[in-house]
Structure formats: structure tokens, C-alpha cells
Amino acid sequence: MPSVTRQPFRTAVLVLVWGWLLFLVLAPNLLVVGASVMTRDPGTFIALPLNLDAYRQLFDPLYLEVFLHSLYMAAMTTLVCLLVGYPFAWALSKLGKQRQLLLIFLLIVPFWTNSLVRTYALKMLLATNGLINSALMSLGWIDEPIQMLYTEGAVIIGLVYLLLPFMILPLYSVFDDLRQELLMASHDLGAGRLATFIHVIVPLTLPGVLAGVMLVLLPAMGLFFVPDILGGSRNLLVGNVIKNQFLDARNWPFGAAASIVLTITMAILMLAHRLSKQRLGEGGAG
């Protein structure tokens, strides 16, 4: 079967793939960028006069406070994930290969289970008359229940609970790649445990740290259902603001501007990640 026409199958595949991505990825994103510089309109959502009002509105003290609070909670979430995940990934990478595979499997099970349901499960534990409070009271450690639900802490716990595997997996991958020989070389050259950690382990695991931060920090600003379930009305995420603006207040330019801020944050993190990999001579230009 000599192909006379120039690979019609190839053309069909490329048209389908490009069509899909252009229509459902590129076009919508351009639309959001466009919307962010337009004017709010109750009927058609956006109208013409181009302006930067939406971006200006981001600096409105009312929203700025929400954003900063969200950023703070996301940063805390990321920090906790890093502090928990770093030693975890390290310890994991030191186990036998077979056991590592099993434990990694156990780590991705939650990723495959409904995050709403898991957030709800957390609520059962944290509620005022929930299991943790009842357990502590029956042990006699506390006299009256601690308010855990609907606090900033609850939101952070919920985000950590959902996002921890996303921090651990990239960290595990860099620890798994960390050659034992390099640590031995460091000791051999006169470095103790602390010096080896600072000069060798930390720089070599940095790409994993940044990848983990990227995978945790951004969702930690967007997962609006976590504060909805655990946080009450005072602990909102950027995600809640975007959702409210788009679905309730119908202020598209403002919601779009907020989401662009998220995207820019993502771009910066991705750039940092790539640079850190290039420093190790892995990333290259690709």
C-alpha cells in the first residue's frame, strides 16, 4: 500500500489535537486575559472599554487583606508540607526497594480518592463535639472542647491533608536519585553530617523542593471547598474570591484578574524550578 497522499492519518491526528488544544486551552486562556482588562457588564458579563480597573481592585484593602490571608495560609500549608514531607521522603528513600514501592502506592491511594470526602472526614475529627475533642475529654486532658473547626488552623490542616502527597512525591524522586556516593565523598573530604546536609543534600534536593512547593502552593490558594467545609467565612482562599466573583457577583474582570495573578505566581515558580534543575545540568533547554 504505497501512500500517495502525504500521510492523511498524520494530518487528521494533528488537526484533532491542535483543534482541541487551541479551542479548549489557548482560546479560553486568552479570553480570561481579555476579560481581565475589560469592564464588568451585567448582561454580557464583559463590555468594551479597556481598562485596568480589575487589577486596581485587587489592591482594594478589603480584597488585599483576603489575598494576603490566603497567601499566608497557602504559605503555611506549603511550609508544613515541606517540613513533614522532607524527612518523610528522605526516610522513605532509605528503605528497601520493594517496601518503597508499597509505601508509594499507599501514598497515591488518597490521590485517587475523592478529596471532598476526605475533607469531610477531617471535619468529623475536628468538630467541636467531634472525635478528637471527645477523645481528649474522655482522657481528661481537657475540660471543654477546643474550637478547631472554622479556624485558620483547620483550613491549613485540611490543605496539608489533601496536598501532602504532592509535596512528597517530587521530594521522594530527588532523594531516590541522590547518589549515596556523593554523601560519602562529602564525608571523605572532611564534612560532618550538618555540613554535608547544607552543602550537598539541600542543593541537590532543591529541584524537588521547588517542584513540591509548586504543586502545593498553587492548589493551596485555589481549593475553595476546603474553607467552605472547614474554615467558615473568615478564612477564604483566592479560589473562593474567584469563585464568588465569577458565579455570584458576576464580576468577570475582577475574577479574571485574580486568576491571572495565580497564573503569574505559577509561572514564576516554574521558572525557578527550571533554573534550579539547569544548575544541576539536568534540565537543558528542553
Partner: peptide, 17 residues
């Protein structure tokens, strides 16, 4: 990599328009 919520609003905007 992009936050789900960014994808969500961009698609919503597209569908409505």
C-alpha cells in the same frame, strides 16, 4: 500544572461566550 480554578473559569468564560 495550572491551578484547576484557572482552567475552570477560562472554560466557563468560553462556554458562556
Amino acid at each position: 500544572m495550572s491551578p484547576e480554578i484557572v482552567l475552570a473559569i477560562s472554560l466557563l468564560a468560553l462556554f458562556l461566550l
